[in-house]
Design a binder for these strands. Structure first.
Lengths: 208, 208
DNA sequence: AGATGTCTGTTACGTAGTTCACAATTGCGC
DNA sequence: GCGCAATTGTGAACTACGTAACAGACATCT
């Protein structure tokens, strides 16, 4: 459908729209203008309209956007109308915290398997999952219909674990390890790296 | 010092350079060219040189950059040559995981106090901290020399907690709540939001 | 039903960020 | 000490992104 390649920044903003619209919907609103949405999200109405225009025409002139309709469309564009199954690699402190994080499931992301390279961890229970050995990874990914890998291993192991995930055919990786991993084209990586965030923040703080 | 305003994207990349250089240093390398660094970081040499040029002239033509020198300069530019003291607000599951996260301290970020609005939590021990009531926040921030607030409260409470942090005078906020908070100019927010990351990732996965 | 005001979708324009390309400088070998 | 190879720093060219502005479409009021 997308004739003109959609800029990545636009894709990054779509979930923001979904979230704001969901909130508006819960508040009982059924129609919203780009103006109003822009005020919520601290962005210009023009940008919102431009972003949406990459995907189609969802609004009504003179009225605005039907929240229900636009939400449905956006969720469809982003592929959020279904369950995404993920596996977690690395069940140290961080990995355990991720498994127990309650924010994923309500949004349709489920961690259905946990792996660790250490024999000490294999067999342990984490949340309601049993930790499995890395050798089982290909089989479980296949059997369980897993399409996302969540990486929570130490920095030194991250790249090799990610290589393994890519090799197995996973196309989406959520990486919590403090490294900027290399992946081949066609694989999407998102890094969660609070230390990087802090380190760029301090640039602006130190001047005080 | 910075006559021409430094673009934010550039500041966001500096910590990446610091990390890569630190790694090179550990590997025993003492000099690196923009070419080599670019290969590591998957970016063009020109971009690295341009980025660095916003802050000064750190390289030697024909040779490259002295890693020791450049690291020192970059750490200084980012304000990383000292300890940054942070407080945590919200000691639920997520907050506890953040306190126990071992990645902050080695980089000079220390969480020195924890707060919660719930009386149930106040007084509890988390890591080696004792949870304090929100009413103590201004005093503790002052006494302990805290300059960064880490927010790990439920979405609905996040904006008001952040307002409170700003009011008290904190200029840096690391926000783990799934909201895009409003803050006045001069306050720096960094959002850690794995769900947003996943939701933009699926756009690229769904086409398969 | 016509007039009026609202709001979208889109084109044109402006700004910001990235890459190119080359002069200037350095180190090294002979 | 001179030539050669390497590599920086930077203005200029290019690309991507964001904003402005307006024609066209819809809703509402009278």
């Amino acid at each position: 459908m997308q004739q003109v390649e959609v800029p990545e920044v636009v894709v990054l903003r779509l979930p923001l729209y979904v979230r704001a619209l969901t909130q508006l919907q819960r508040e009982g609103t059924s129609v919203v203008s780009s103006q109003q949405l822009g005020e919520r999200l601290q962005m210009t109405p023009a940008q919102i309209r431009k972003d949406l225009s990459y995907f189609g025409r969802f609004g009504k002139q003179g009225r605005g956007y039907s929240i229900e309709f636009l939400l449905e469309e956006l969720r469809d564009i982003l592929g959020l109308n279904g369950e995404w199954r993920a596996c977690l690699i690395g069940v140290g402190r961080l990995g355990r915290a991720i498994i127990n994080y309650t924010g994923f499931a309500p949004e349709g992301f489920t961690i259905v398997a946990a792996f660790d390279s250490s024999d000490v961890q294999v067999g342990a229970s984490v949340g309601d999952l049993s930790v499995q050995p890395m050798s089982d990874l290909p089989r479980v990914v296949d059997e369980q219909g897993i399409s996302i890998g969540i990486v929570a291993v130490p920095a030194v192991e991250a790249q090799s674990v990610i290589n393994r995930l890519v090799e197995i055919g996973l196309k989406g990786i959520l990486n919590y390890a403090p490294v900027a991993p290399y992946v081949p084209r066609g694989v999407v990586v998102r890094n969660i790296d609070p230390v990087l965030s802090l380190q760029s923040m301090t640039f602006y703080l130190k001047s005080d």
